[in-house]
Amino acid sequence: MKSLKNNYLICLISIFAICGCATTGNKAFKTSESQVELRSIQTRAFDMTDKKLMMQTVISTLQDLDFVVRKADLILGSVTGSKFLGNAVVAMTVTIRPRGEKQLLVRVNAQIGIRSVEDAETYQDFFNALGKALFLAAHKVD
């Protein structure tokens, strides 16, 4: 019986110790993928140089995917939009920057509610949609 009491005491102390250590600030900086891996699933290079056209195509893609564009900046090359998924808000930022003289790098990051999306398949879906929009743009379809 005494050992059972001791066990309880140890349990309680560990619970307090765990609770005491909880700082929530660093939770906001936690990622499950490595920085390089995350960049590789969120980034694609495209063989075009017209940044403005790329940004307008990204905006069209976001609109095709039901997003409402909230902010955009031509110099920074960023587009931010959001859409609803059930009761959750999906927020997305797309940045476009030149890579060398012949390519543009497009990087996307998405968040659902309080969770960051770190799943390669989801980003691939976005780039597939962007590919279709670029195809339409190349064929001069608005």
């Binding site: 995917l65 998405a110 659902i112 989801t122």
Partner: peptide, 12 residues
């Protein structure tokens, strides 16, 4: 996290 929410809808 849910999947498929960035798939292009058929009626786009």
């Amino acid at each position: 996290t849910p999947k498929g929410f960035l798939k292009l809808p058929e009626n786009y």
